[in-house]
C-alpha cells in the first residue's frame, strides 16, 4: 500500500501531538504501525534495504574436506536459503559460488558476513559476501 503525502502528514502530526517529548524510535514505529493498520493497509517495516534479498557468496582457497559442509551449515543455521551453487576445482585450488536468499534469515547481511569471516578463518579460505545488485549492475544492462 502506498500512502499519499496528505496521509503521511496526518500521521506525522498525530505522532507529534500524541507522543510529544516522549517520542522514541520504538514508540513512533508502534504508533505508525497502528495508524497504517487502522487505515486498512498492511504495515511492513523493511528489515534492511536489500532490494531482492539475495546475496552472492564467493569462496576460494586450497581444497580440503569440509569446506562446503562448513559454509552451508552456517548458512542453514542462519535460516538462509541457498538457491544456486556452483563449484570448481582447479588443481589444488577450490572455488565455490552461491546465490543465497537471506530475506528469511533472522540475521542481517552484516551479521552473516561476520559469521562467514569466522568460518573463513577456521577453514583457511576466503569468503566474500556481496549483495546481488552489484553483479547485476556490472554485468547486465
Amino acid at each position: 500500500m502506498k500512502l499519499s503525502e496528505e496521509e503521511i502528514r496526518k500521521i506525522t502530526f498525530e505522532a507529534i501531538s500524541e507522543l510529544g517529548d516522549k517520542a522514541t524510535p520504538e514508540a513512533v514505529k508502534e504508533l505508525v504501525r497502528r495508524r497504517v493498520e487502522s487505515m486498512g493497509g498492511d504495515y511492513k517495516l523493511e528489515k534492511n534495504d536489500v532490494s531482492s534479498g539475495r546475496v552472492i557468496l564467493t569462496s576460494f582457497g586450497l581444497n580440503h574436506p569440509g569446506i562446503v559442509a562448513g559454509v552451508t551449515k552456517a548458512l542453514g543455521d542462519a535460516n538462509c536459503d541457498i538457491q544456486d551453487l556452483s563449484q570448481k576445482i582447479l588443481g589444488d585450488f577450490f572455488t565455490m559460488i552461491m546465490v543465497v536468499d537471506i530475506s528469511a534469515s533472522q540475521k542481517d547481511l552484516k551479521e552473516i558476513q561476520e559469521e562467514m569471516n569466522k568460518i573463513a578463518e577456521l577453514l583457511k579460505i576466503k569468503i566474500y559476501l556481496q549483495h546481488e545488485d552489484v553483479f547485476r549492475y556490472m554485468h547486465r544492462i
Binding site: K88, F135, H139
Partner: peptide, 17 residues
C-alpha cells in the same frame, strides 16, 4: 546460476586485487 562464474570472479578480482 543467474551470473556466469567468470563474471562473478571478475568483480571479485576488481575489488580485491
Amino acid at each position: 546460476m543467474p551470473y556466469e562464474f567468470g563474471e562473478i570472479l571478475e568483480t571479485i578480482r576488481m575489488t580485491e586485487i
